[in-house]
């Protein structure tokens, strides 16, 4: 599988997961979407530990959509671990959070988030945001694997 065709969605809320998947599909984003249901799963997938251990090179997604508030390992901790590892240091990570708190936004950028999107409540605005996000990160933005 071509890693360029994967989007990793890290989201614990089933409602938000379904809505995000729908919004992504609506805009003819043909990438395969892998869902990690919490921070621990995301770290396992991206850094090849736990269930994904032994995989020679973890499949690196083109883009990570990361929720902040999650059980076990939260989004900020996932981000911290990704940035600390040379294999995922430059992976594009877009925070997709409900929080508008300045503190969360600041912490995310300090930890090396590429972008921060606050999930709108209105679904039309939500799909619009996903559309813009896909357009920018999957089409306009030049992508490069770490090695």
């Amino acid at each position: 599988m071509n890693s360029k065709n994967i989007i990793l969605l890290v989201e614990d809320n089933p409602g938000d997961t379904l809505l995000a998947l729908r919004a992504l599909k609506q805009h003819e984003i043909t990438h395969e979407i892998v869902v990690a249901h919490d921070g621990a799963e995301a770290v396992q997938y991206l850094l090849g530990t736990g269930t994904f251990m032994g995989r020679s090179i973890p499949l690196k997604p083109r883009l990570v959509l990361l929720d902040l508030k999650m059980p076990k390992i939260d989004g900020l901790e996932v981000l911290r671990r990704l940035r600390a590892d040379s294999r995922t240091k430059i992976l594009p990570v877009v925070i997709l959070s409900t929080s508008k708190e300045e503190e969360d936004i600041l912490k995310s950028y300090n930890l090396g988030a590429n972008s921060y999107i606050c999930k709108p409540i209105d679904f039309d605005q939500f799909t619009k945001a996903i559309e813009n996000l896909g357009l920018y990160w999957l089409t306009l933005n030049e992508f490069c694997l770490p090695f």
Binding site: G15, D16, L18, L19, R22, T98, S99, I121, F123, F126
Partner: peptide, 21 residues
């Protein structure tokens, strides 16, 4: 208030989104 706001917004997004769907 931060967690209340967060926890209330998420189900609202589902109510709004699934109505649309």
């Amino acid at each position: 208030s931060y967690s209340v706001a967060h926890d209330l917004r998420t189900p609202l997004r589902s109510i709004n989104g699934f109505s649309k769907i």
